[in-house]
């Protein structure tokens, strides 16, 4: 596997980014704005990585906000109704999300990859409709309800603590994915993605692996959903919105589909670009720029920004010859 190759500079880069992430609060101090931006960025790194993990198994989802939202609602309800601490209910939310994810997966493993994309998109629409209509007595309908914060605001400098909690979770998720992909499971997933028929011939039953990928992706998305809600302190059905389904796709493609670093790089680059273009006063323009970027990357750089150094190197070498 490509990402499993150990390249010193690449590891160094990862180490430096991590070190930077660790010392950021000391650099920016109590700057709430930067911390908020970074916390949201980290939550989206977790979410995009979860979405991207699905593509390792050759599956794709257009409605991942369903799992973000399910995790968010389950975690919030557990925290509010049962009075459990948010950090614990995060896991509960993730498990609930995974449970529903596996149910969807069971119905979908037999489907073509793009049927699955349709089904997940539809599922997000259905869940949102349910939450605001039939389930409204529990979910508060469109009004939503208030939830506790990850770290109680009464603790001084709670946002810094919150930042470290989210950072820790992000690192844990990435490390988990790293080892999973290097394990036999990762190899099996790669085999299924490249050619399902051949994988079957080699004695790999794709169904449990695909289900595992779907369940784990839903689990991590659910955790990201819980984090986001506990960061806001208020949940509303907007969490199932189409835009929240599309962002992880954009982040992952920009960074590099099917790579571990892709969603991380993609989230950072696109978020910076997004906010930067806003400062320049491009309102509709930035959507167009993101759209063009997406089209260009899919056509000319199918492995995303992470493959850019390699591509440039190739060009240079070719010129040199």
């Amino acid at each position: 596997m490509r990402l499993a190759q150990v390249r010193t500079p690449r590891n160094l880069l990862a180490a430096v980014i991590l070190a930077l992430a660790l010392i950021v609060p000391f650099l920016v101090g109590q700057n709430l704005y930067l911390l908020t931006v970074l916390v949201l960025m980290l939550i989206f790194i977790i979410y995009s990585s979860a979405w991207n993990f699905l593509t390792f198994s050759g599956q794709g989802s257009l409605g991942h906000a369903a799992f973000l939202g399910l995790g968010g609602y389950a975690a919030s309800l557990a925290a509010v109704r049962l009075g459990l601490p948010p950090l614990l209910t995060l896991v509960l939310g993730g498990l609930f999300s995974a449970f529903i994810g596996i149910l969807i997966g069971i119905t979908c493993v037999r489907l073509r990859e793009w049927f699955l994309a349709m089904v997940t998109f539809g599922f997000a629409v259905i869940i949102q409709t349910l939450v605001v209509s039939q389930l409204a007595p529990v979910t508060g309908g469109w009004d939503g309800f208030a939830v506790p914060k990850i770290v109680p605001t009464s603790i001084p400098g709670y946002l810094v603590l919150e930042y470290y909690v989210v950072l820790l979770l992000a690192v844990l998720v990435l490390v988990l994915f790293y080892f999973l992909l290097r394990s036999r499971i990762g190899l099996a997933l790669a085999a299924i993605r490249e050619n399902e028929t051949e994988a079957r011939a080699a004695g790999i039953n794709p169904v449990p692996f695909k289900l595992f990928a779907f369940g784990l992706s839903a689990f991590v998305s659910g955790i990201a959903g819980g984090l986001e809600i506990f960061h806001f302190g208020y949940i509303t059905p907007e969490i199932f919105g189409i835009d929240l389904s599309f962002w992880p796709i954009i982040y992952s493609i920009t960074g590099g589909l099917g790579t571990l670093a892709g969603p991380v790089i993609g989230t950072i680059v696109v978020t910076l670009l997004w906010d930067g273009l806003n400062v320049l006063g491009l309102t509709y323009g930035r959507f167009i720029i993101i759209g063009i970027l997406l089209v260009l990357i899919i056509i000319f750089l199918p492995r995303g920004l992470v493959s850019l150094p390699g591509e440039i190197e190739k060009r240079w070498k070719r010129k040199g010859e």
Partner: peptide, 25 residues
């Protein structure tokens, strides 16, 4: 190696960006 070169450039840019960001604040 060229490859390292690029990686270090990116690293450098990242660092500069961060310093700038914290400077702005």
């Amino acid at each position: 190696m060229r490859h390292d070169c690029i990686i270090y450039t990116i690293l450098g840019l990242l660092l500069i960006a961060l310093v700038l960001m914290s400077g702005c604040t």
